[in-house]
Amino acid sequence: MIIAVQAHSAQQFDQYRLGSGDVIKISVFGQQDLMVETKLSNIGVINYPFLGDINLVGLTANEVEALIDKGLRGDYLVNPSVSVTVVEYRPFFIDGAVNKPGGYPYQPALSVNKAAALAGGYTERANPSKVLIIRNISGVETELEATEIDIIFPGDIVTVKERFF
C-alpha cells in the first residue's frame, strides 16, 4: 500500500522513536556518574548504571526518561531529574537517480531535495516529483509517495525515480 508522505510527517517526528544507529545522551541532574552517551546497537540494548540492561529501540526520549526515572527513584535517588537527548540521528539512505547513492547522516528538517544534494545531486534522467520513501511506521515498513519538498526521517530509504524521456 502506498500513501502520501505529508499525512505522517509532522505527527511521526513529534513522537520520534529511537532506533539502531541513534546516538543518545542520558543525564541525571547533579549525578555526573549517571551520564551516558552511547550509540544504539542493532538490538538497542544499553547497560545503564544501577539498572543493568535496558532496551531503548522503539521508545521516545520521553519514554526513556520515564523508564530511567522510575528505575532510579526510591532505591537510588529521591527525586531524579532525567534528561534524554538525541545527539546524532541514524542515517538515511538514498538511491535511484542521484549521482552518489548511499547512506548519509541525518539532519533535522531534511527534505528530499536537500538529501539529493548531499548525494551529489540528481542525474540527468531524475524525476524529483516522483520519489518513493520506505519508512518504518509503528514497526511496519511502509511505502510513501513523495516529492522533492517532502521531509524525510532518520532511517528512511529514499528512491528517486527516473523520467521516461
Rank of each mutant, 00 (worst) to 15 (best):
160 V>P: 00
137 I>V: 14
147 T>P: 05
80 P>N: 01
70 K>R: 14
52 G>W: 07
151 I>A: 02
116 A>W: 08
162 E>C: 09
44 G>L: 13
22 D>Q: 07
133 I>Y: 04
36 V>P: 08
110 L>F: 04
146 A>L: 07
62 N>F: 07
24 I>Y: 14
85 T>P: 02
53 D>R: 13
15 Q>W: 01
110 L>R: 04
151 I>P: 00
128 P>Y: 00
12 Q>I: 12
101 P>K: 14
54 I>T: 07
99 N>V: 08
65 E>K: 12
95 D>T: 03
86 V>C: 08
6 Q>P: 06
81 S>T: 11
106 Y>Q: 00
49 P>Y: 08
95 D>G: 09
119 A>T: 09
109 A>F: 13
138 S>F: 14
96 G>I: 08
137 I>Y: 03
67 L>I: 11
129 S>I: 01
116 A>G: 10
2 I>E: 15
72 L>S: 02
127 N>Q: 09
30 G>S: 12
63 E>K: 09
119 A>Y: 05
46 I>K: 12
15 Q>A: 13
155 G>F: 00
33 D>P: 14
68 I>P: 08
138 S>Y: 11
41 S>G: 13
114 K>F: 13
100 K>H: 15
16 Y>C: 08
9 S>Q: 08
54 I>K: 04
115 A>E: 00
164 F>N: 10
54 I>A: 03
99 N>I: 14
133 I>F: 03
98 V>D: 02
52 G>C: 03
23 V>A: 09
25 K>W: 13
147 T>A: 04
88 E>G: 11
20 S>M: 07
75 D>W: 02
114 K>W: 13
84 V>L: 11
51 L>S: 01
21 G>M: 03
130 K>I: 01
54 I>P: 10
49 P>G: 13
18 L>C: 01
25 K>Q: 13
4 A>T: 15
53 D>S: 01
122 Y>K: 05
92 F>W: 12
76 Y>S: 06
37 E>W: 12
53 D>N: 06
26 I>R: 11
32 Q>I: 13
28 V>L: 11
64 V>R: 04
160 V>T: 15
88 E>D: 05
65 E>G: 05
94 I>C: 03
75 D>R: 07
151 I>L: 10
66 A>P: 04
88 E>F: 05
31 Q>K: 13
138 S>D: 13
71 G>F: 04
147 T>K: 10
14 D>R: 12
14 D>E: 09
